[in-house]
Nucleic acid binder design. Structure first.
Length: 822
DNA sequence: CTCTCCCT
């Protein structure tokens, strides 16, 4: 029986002969992983060099290598080899090496030219794993700079019409091989529990359909709930998820030994990684749970969301592997159209500290320089750099340090690599690093103390009593053994010093060393402040609650306060030895006073305080300036004279340009230290602030050569015909107001001006009692017309004041008629 | 009741 891929093999060969980068799209069952690579081994352009094929999972890498070797009638390790973590099966004869993605990254670090390799195949590229994206970026850089003969074949199981164009690569398409699957939509209440809906659909399928049933749920909790509800049905109900011991996984994958129908309740592990025999019905609950990195806390957390279209297609396809099948989707056809097409690439969601360190080791200080398909977000890179600097792995320019280069020798997260490379007790470091990487071997509710886990591991390894889950302990021990080999140290089964555990954790999580908050009566102890500034609490009644200081390994930030799941006590003296005395000068907004002391600080933690005898002036000025910026300019009092000065200068800035300083609220706030600095040195309280005389400080902002121009162009007062000097009211952006009794202006034709004659004032003409009767900028037309109406209204009310028939010739006066006659 | 999946 020929495989669909075989019809396009000549096309793939021709494309690779001419292009360094080729995209192959082929659905599941085409044979692209298990047949095609063997056909490429003897191509002329390969020049006798070997092929590396990447797989995202270890199980898949081993299985694919086995199928390929079988195709040649050989065993793995001859022409076809495989290499995954903990297991290498290659020989001198190996020409095709199936490896997991991280292996290639390591190999590129050691040998950037990838000597002896002519072709790299990236399988399952549609998954867009972080390591696949990194591998592609590095390989394209190698092609451009070092190896123009190196070829890359990108293989994808789903159709992405943009991919070839975005890579500038030709596309080869192949058909797949699958039986038809009848997709039926069964909308359910989206506010209900997903396990209830799945259980109902499974019961229905047991009645109406034939064959085994595979149901998708978001996680272990929902799987357990559904399994409990299905306990009575006439079928074998089997859970399937990644953390399940291997024997139980096998029970879900194999036909039921008793010949009963199977109902497999699975997480997304059954989408691609594992194939279940005999499935004819898929029930898709429509949810999936994924990890998301939160740069604000440096933590990854689990997020449950809607399934994506490409994942739903994969899930449905599981019903058609061996015969025609049915897929029940527990949502509506309308919802289906609204689902996102695919998950974002892992690179955009993940913790980028490992990637950033790899790239620094590669010599790339700015990851943006690589030819990415989707570039890693710069803010995430910044977060990663901050962490890596705190681990002494990068310098301020983003270059890798000698200590950082040592971290790359440990194939694990840089945090754990730092723990391993800097620890005094290497045997303990190996155990702790392994425990931190694996799932908790102890059951839920076992408390947060790391030493309980170390005891469990060491007790089990010494052959004493066993606490915890053996399958997990075995995985932990396998990791620990790898670290012991690298560190050249023998295992140690003695009980460790608890403080030594805390110090190890502090190497990996420096921002999570924590100090107990002062306990408030009635509230439970065990609340801590982390050096990173976040608050976190131990579970109620935890044995660690009495500790003064902790090093926290695992926590979850749900609300304002995090929950601590794994930690070790820390000697407060150890913290103090790493802290530094710092002058702390702060404005206390509550009391409105300046607080000045010295604090023994480590990040957000203050371990001790002592009085500060002499307060450095610059710190004081900055603290008060920050307080004014936080609370607002109203903390200061602008006297009428100071306000008038600001208004005059601001008016001139509007009229004459930016040679006049900016005295707006925003500008004054931004430059507080400059113009008010020396004044702030004497301030201790909010009242001191309010009493500051701002006028001299504001005047200092005006260049000396403009002080005379200020008085000429924007005088404070104008003289009027009566002889009075009348105050002007300046309003930036508008004409200044001259408010004056109209009798004082008799005979004046032209409206007075400021700004060197360019800006007429706005006259507020007042009654003898000082009430405005007319607002005008045209005095001449006032005397000629409206004056007479005003006169008619007011003559009777103010008979002692002059109201002449001819305002042009009457003597201007500020007095009544009798006083004027005297 | 933190915990989908995976990797050096």
């Amino acid at each position: 029986m020929t495989l669909p891929i075989q019809t396009v093999v000549p096309e793939v060969k021709a494309a690779l002969a001419q292009h360094p980068l080729v995209v192959l799209q082929a659905p599941p069952g085409a044979g692209k992983s298990t047949a095609l690579p063997l056909d490429l081994l003897h191509e002329e352009w390969l020049a006798g060099q070997s092929i590396i094929m990447l797989q995202p999972r270890r199980v898949a890498a081993r299985a694919v290598a086995a199928r390929l070797a079988e195709g040649l009638g050989e065993a793995v390790g001859e022409t076809v080899g495989s290499r995954v973590r903990f297991e290498s099966r290659v020989s001198d004869r190996t020409r095709l090496e199936v490896v997991t993605e991280g292996i290639l990254t390591r190999r590129l670090q050691r040998d950037p030219e990838l000597s002896g390799v002519g072709l790299v195949i990236l399988d399952e590229f549609h998954e867009r794993s972080l390591n696949a994206d990194l591998a592609l970026a590095l390989l394209r850089e190698v092609q451009g700079a070092l190896r123009d003969d190196l070829r890359v074949l990108v293989m994808s199981a789903t159709l992405d019409p943009d991919l070839p164009a975005r890579l500038g690569a030709p596309l080869v398409e192949s058909a797949g091989r699958a039986y038809p699957v009848d997709v039926r939509y069964l909308p359910t209440d989206p506010t209900g529990r997903v396990e209830d809906a799945v259980v109902a659909a499974v019961r229905r399928a047991l009645d109406t359909d034939e064959g085994d049933i595979l149901a998708f749920l978001p996680g272990v909790r929902e799987i357990r709930g559904a399994a409990a509800q299905l306990a009575g049905v006439d079928a074998a109900v089997l859970p399937l998820y990644g953390d399940l011991p291997l024997a139980e996984q096998r029970r879900a994958l194999m036909p039921d030994p008793g010949g009963r129908r199977k109902v497999v309740l699975a997480t997304s592990i059954a989408e691609t990684s594992l194939t279940i025999q005999g499935v004819r019905v898929v029930v898709d609950g429509g949810q999936s749970r994924r990890q998301q990195f939160d740069p604000a806390t440096g933590l990854t957390r689990m997020v449950t969301g809607r399934v994506t279209q490409d994942a739903a297609t994969q899930r449905a396809g599981r019903a058609g592997r061996t015969a025609p099948g049915v897929c029940y989707r527990l949502w509506s056809e309308r919802t289906q159209a609204l689902l996102p097409a695919a998950q974002p690439p892992e690179l955009l969601m993940a913790d980028l500290a490992p990637l950033t360190l790899e790239l620094a080791g590669w010599g790339t200080t700015d990851p943006a320089d690589l030819p990415w398909l989707d570039a890693p977000p710069p803010t995430r890179i910044d977060t990663a750099r901050t962490l890596l600097r705190s681990l002494d792995a990068l310098d301020d320019a983003g270059r890798i340090t000698p200590a950082g280069t040592r971290l790359l020798d440990f194939p694990t997260h840089p945090r754990l690599a730092h723990l391993l490379s800097e620890a005094d007790d290497a045997a303990l470091a190996a155990d702790v690093a392994a425990l931190l990487e694996e799932r908790d071997p102890l059951p839920p509710g076992s408390g947060a103390d790391l030493s309980e886990r170390v005891d469990a591991l060491r007790g089990w390894r010494a052959g004493g009593r066993t606490r915890g889950e053996v399958a997990v302990l075995e995985r932990v021990e396998r990791l620990s053994k790898q670290w012991r080999r690298l560190l050249k140290v023998q295992p140690d089964n003695a009980p460790p010093d608890p403080y030594a555990l805390g110090e190890l954790l502090a190497l990996a999580y420096p921002e999570r060393v924590a100090l107990a908050r002062e306990s408030v009566a009635g509230l439970h102890k065990g609340r801590f402040l982390l050096a990173g500034g976040q608050g976190a609490a131990l579970p109620e009644g935890d044995a660690l609650a009495g500790a003064r200081a902790l090093a926290v390994a695992h926590l979850n930030m749900t609300g304002a306060e995090g929950r601590i799941f794994l930690a070790a006590p820390l000697n407060p003296a150890w913290l103090a030895a790493r802290a530094t005395w710092q002058d702390a000068v702060r404005w206390d907004a509550r009391t409105g006073t300046l607080l000045a002391q010295q604090e023994l600080r480590l990040g957000a933690l203050a371990l001790d305080t002592r009085p500060l005898r002499e307060v450095p002036a610059d710190l004081k000025v900055k603290a008060i300036a920050d307080a004014v910026r936080a609370e607002g300019l109203h903390l200061l009092t602008f006297s009428p004279a100071a306000s008038a000065f600001r208004a005059r200068v601001q008016s001139l800035r509007e009229w004459r340009g930016e040679e006049w300083p900016d005295l707006s609220d925003a500008a004054l706030l931004a430059t507080l230290e400059d113009w008010l600095g020396s004044g702030l040195e004497r301030v201790r309280t909010r009242d001191d602030l309010a009493r500051l005389d701002l006028l001299p400080a504001l005047q200092s902002l005006l260049p000396w050569n403009l002080t005379r121009e200020l008085d000429e162009l924007a005088p404070t007062h104008l003289s009027v015909p009566s002889g009075s000097r009348v105050r002007l009211e300046y309003r930036p952006g508008e004409a200044p107001i001259l408010a004056v009794k109209l009798q004082e202006l008799f005979g004046l034709a032209d409206t007075p001006t400021v700004n060197g004659g360019r800006t007429p004032v706005l006259l507020h003409l007042l009654s003898p009692a000082g009430r405005p009767v007319q607002v005008t900028q045209d005095l001449r037309s006032f005397w000629n017309s409206s004056y007479f109406e005003v006169r008619k209204d007011l003559r009777g009310r103010y008979p002692k004041h002059p109201w002449p028939d001819d305002p042009w010739t009457h003597e201007p006066t500020r007095w009544t008629k009798r006083r004027a006659e005297k």
